[in-house]
Computed example of a mutant assay.
Amino acid sequence: MSEGEGKQLLHLVFGGELKSLNSMDFRDLNDLDIVGIFPNYASAHQAWKAKAQMTVDNAHMRYFIVHMHRMLDPDSDTTTGS
């Protein structure tokens, strides 16, 4: 990390078609759309929003943001970022 950069708060953006609107089960795990891993919440949110807007006509399609940094270092204080 270079001087002036904050701590990396990695976020994964992915999505897929759900089996039903009342569940979080994906229709086909082999067909998940892995959008990417982003260095902060703001860039992850921007990617999530773009993908969600592209699939707005499919009610079963959902995209998610996973806070990877919380899984990699669960004891860290993440109150300064999302």
Rank of each mutant, 00 (worst) to 15 (best):
V13W: 05
T55F: 06
Q53F: 08
N40E: 14
L12S: 08
L21T: 06
E17V: 03
D57F: 06
S76G: 05
G81Y: 02
Y41W: 15
F14P: 01
D33P: 01
K7H: 03
E5N: 13
L18S: 10
K51S: 14
I34A: 08
V35F: 13
N58T: 09
A59N: 09
M1E: 00
V35P: 08
G4P: 10
L32T: 12
M68S: 10
H45W: 14
R70V: 14
H69L: 02
K49G: 03
V13H: 06
S82R: 08
L32K: 11
I34C: 05
H45F: 08
M54K: 13
D31L: 07
L32E: 11
G81K: 01
H69P: 07
M1T: 09
E3T: 07
V66M: 09
V66R: 01
L32W: 05
R62Y: 00
F14A: 03
T79F: 00
A44H: 06
G4A: 12
V56K: 15
L9Y: 05
L29A: 14
S23D: 05
N40G: 13
S23Y: 04
L32C: 11
A42L: 15
M54Y: 07
D73I: 01
A50E: 13
G4S: 09
S23T: 15
F14E: 00
D75T: 11
L29F: 10
Q53T: 03
I65T: 08
D28N: 12
D75C: 06
G36Y: 07
T55P: 03
G81Q: 00
F64D: 06
I34S: 10
W48V: 04
D28L: 08
S20L: 03
E5A: 04
S82P: 01
Y41R: 14
N40W: 12
L29S: 07
L72A: 13
L72I: 12
D75R: 00
L9R: 09
G16K: 05
F14K: 11
N22T: 01
K7M: 11
R27F: 11
F38K: 03
P39T: 10
N40Y: 12
A52C: 14
D75S: 02
V66H: 03
A52N: 11
T55C: 11
L72G: 03
G15R: 02
E5Q: 14
G6Q: 13
K51I: 12
A47M: 12
M61T: 15
D57A: 13
R70P: 06
A42F: 13
T79K: 05
F26G: 07
D57P: 00
H67F: 04
T78M: 02
M68L: 15
K51D: 03
W48R: 06
G81R: 04
A42P: 05
